[in-house]
Simulated scan of single mutants.
Amino acid sequence: MGVSNEKTERCGTICLKYLLFAFNFLFWLAGGAVMAVGIWTVVEKSDYISLLSSSIYAISAYILILAGVIVMVTGVLGCCATFKEQRQILRVYFVLLLCIFLLEILAGVLAYVYYQQLNEELKENLKETMVTKYRQPNEDHVTKAVDKLQQEFKCCGSNSSSDWNASKWIISESKDSRRFVPDSCCKTPVDGCGKRDHPSNIYKVEGGCITKLENFIMDHLKIIGAVGVGIACVQIVGMVFTCCLYRSLKADPY
């Protein structure tokens, strides 16, 4: 009877090992996905980050990158701990899982909080940034971001093309070469095309670029929040498996 119980316990331990190994492999892949989302947000969309006064959007992305790196390292550690059946490594693995869980929940919460305040921030700051920093000394990153924003989203100005009337750059130009809007507002951008302020030449979008940028960032905040919270929920399964295996190994006489 005792031998039968020992065999059953041993079989349970083996099953838990393979379940945890499968989880760690999937977890490692998920870590790569989390890191990729964070890197993509920072690298591909970094121009737009310079148009925001708050750094929460960027911080959320950096947290995902950090969490993704730790997830991939933890996945390898978890596989080693599982097959070596060392409770000490399992304890370290569990603590790392808990830290990643908290990081990803934090990224999700930050994304949600910023989602709520994004509209007000853009209303307060986007126009000011565009008219005071565009084509100004040491503000090349803003100029690049504004040009990319207007061309990519086919818009002109924060709320409308008339916002550019207050631009420091446009006011400082001589009358002969003065543009009404930057050349990036043009439907077919060529040098000097911004001198002709006509709907057939420049983008006249209702709501201006502020609506386009807000929708774009909100979509990405949803992705950041969903990825962070989604992977965190999956980790709960991993922590449960780890606790079960730890208890099983503690009771296992072999």
Rank of each mutant, 00 (worst) to 15 (best):
S54N: 13
E206C: 15
S162F: 09
S172M: 06
K187P: 05
T188Q: 14
S174K: 06
N138L: 08
A251S: 12
G225T: 05
I210R: 13
K168M: 10
S55A: 07
E128C: 08
G230Y: 06
V3C: 13
L64Q: 00
A145M: 04
H198Q: 09
S200E: 13
Q88N: 09
C185R: 03
R179A: 14
C233W: 08
G31D: 02
T188L: 14
I217P: 00
E121C: 02
P182N: 01
V229H: 02
M1R: 05
K148A: 13
N159W: 11
A107K: 09
M72V: 11
Q86T: 06
G194S: 11
G207Q: 12
A33S: 15
K154E: 14
F27M: 09
G68E: 02
K7W: 03
G2P: 03
G31V: 01
P137D: 10
K168R: 11
K148N: 13
I105A: 12
E214M: 08
S184W: 01
I223G: 00
T242L: 01
L19M: 05
M72R: 04
A33H: 08
F27D: 05
S160C: 12
L26P: 03
I231Q: 00
K123L: 13
M239L: 00
E139P: 02
N138Y: 11
L106W: 13
G194K: 05
P182I: 03
D252I: 07
D47K: 14
G2T: 07
E206N: 15
S46F: 08
N24Q: 01
I223L: 10
V181L: 11
F153R: 04
F101K: 14
K204L: 15
F180M: 11
L118D: 02
Q151W: 11
C243N: 02
P137H: 07
N24T: 03
Q117H: 12
Q86K: 12
V181W: 09
I49N: 01
A61S: 06
G208W: 10
A111C: 14
A226S: 15
L51P: 02
T8F: 14
Y18K: 07
L90F: 05
K204M: 14
R247A: 07
F23E: 02
L221T: 00
K175N: 10
E152S: 15
C193W: 13
V3I: 14
L149N: 05
R247D: 06
S53V: 06
K175T: 12
V37G: 06
Q86W: 11
Y48Q: 01
A30Q: 04
F101R: 08
T82G: 05
D197Q: 08
L213Y: 04
Y93E: 01
D219A: 10
V146Q: 07
L126Y: 07
P199Q: 06
D219F: 08
K133T: 10
G12Q: 07
V190L: 08
